[in-house]
Design a protein around this nucleic acid. Structure first.
Lengths: 142, 142
DNA sequence: TATATAATTGCAATTTTGTCGCAATTTTAT
DNA sequence: ATAAAATTGCGACAAAATTGCAATTATATA
């Protein structure tokens, strides 16, 4: 069992939830993956974990900060939170729908921390989504 | 007719769409409002504008940058874009679900512009969503 | 390791959300 | 005022998400 799975189990226990087979299966489906849509996750686990359970699990995971939703255009995808991989943001090309993960930018991170202080918030997470047109599409589009 | 409605009509015309009654109704439902969910908008306009039309209108509005989706937890809400009110971000309390609009922060705006340059993207919009616990809830929660 | 209790799951039904084609209506340009 | 084009409402449909409940699985404790 790898470290991230241990962390998952620890997190679930800490919040008083059990580390069931299904939950671990859902987690594994997300590990080392691009962000996935709900139906992708459901499909990937079909025969193993029921759709209702996948939904309930993702909801739970979101609550205990194991996953986060990434919003892309109309829809959304699910990815593990920063505990399980490097913190990053996304930049999306509106034209070709390319999704680029960009490394956490220390300036922005600092600004957000400052904002939190200003509003007396204790931050648990943040997401920055940038939409634009990538270089290739800029050149192609007349 | 106020300025923002004029701007709407202008925007629609510019893109070759007509400024129909329904579209103006949808726009009005959003003006001077907190961000609304789709079903809130549909409900608010029930009897006046059909659900399918509301969806088609919001889709169109998003395309011509009149509205943007704001993602909050599982769902999303719709609000007018920065053309119709000051640019801002949101900070959400996970505990009491309070949604606070925070003024555009010039540091963050600048950092985002720099990022765009780095990745050769031409930015059309961005959204920053910060989740945390507000001061009140920090004090209440033991 | 066996067992009681509590938590979790799958199933099937249902609700909610979003989409589509098409005829009727409204808007726009002339 | 009128014709052409765009938009709308309707109703049917498809997809996504939720729910109650009985059956199963996990957990804690003996």
């Amino acid at each position: 069992m790898d470290t991230s799975q241990k962390l998952l189990i620890e997190t679930l226990k800490k919040h008083g939830f059990s580390a069931s087979k299904s939950r671990i299966a859902v987690f594994s489906a997300l590990l080392h993956q691009e962000p996935l849509t709900m139906s992708e996750i459901v499909h990937k686990l079909s025969g193993k974990v029921d759709r209702a359970t996948v939904y309930r699990t993702i909801e739970l995971f979101e609550k205990v900060n194991v996953v986060q939703r990434l919003h892309i255009g109309w829809k959304y995808k699910i990815e593990l939170t920063d505990q399980f991989h490097e913190h990053h943001h996304h930049i999306i090309c509106q034209s070709c729908a390319k999704l680029i993960a960009i490394d956490g930018d220390s300036h922005i991170e600092k600004d957000i921390a400052d904002l939190a202080k200003k509003y007396s918030f204790s931050i648990t997470s943040h997401q920055l989504e940038i939409k634009g047109i990538c270089k290739t599409c800029q050149l192609l589009d007349v």
